[in-house]
Amino acid sequence: MNTGLWGERLAAGYLFLHGYRILDRNWRCGRYEIDIVARERRSGVLAFVEVKTRSRTDFGLPRDAVTSKKQLFLTRAAQGYLKAHREPDAHTRFDVVEVYTRPLRIVHLPGAF
């Protein structure tokens, strides 16, 4: 199993333990993909989660890899998701989950952009 997929599974588990219901994983809309779609149980907010896994930070933090271009793609995908599920007015949020492998550490950034 590759690192990225491993990190996404780990992140999904983390979110589940922190009060989120996982609705979809690797939801695709044409060439755009969302790693995790989850709903916060407490508030009902729909979170579109991008997971970034890194073993070393020599080339910047994982969150830095979510560039403005990537953000645009995620926004497009989210629009597609809302349309497909007929929820145009849902309260939404874009999160980033960083997974560091050595030592193992998970950082959740709600409302990252």
Binding site: A78, D89, T92
Partner: peptide
């Protein structure tokens, strides 16, 4: 005028 709705921020 201001209108606030859900959806993508």
């Amino acid at each position: 005028e201001a209108y606030i709705s859900g959806g993508i921020h």
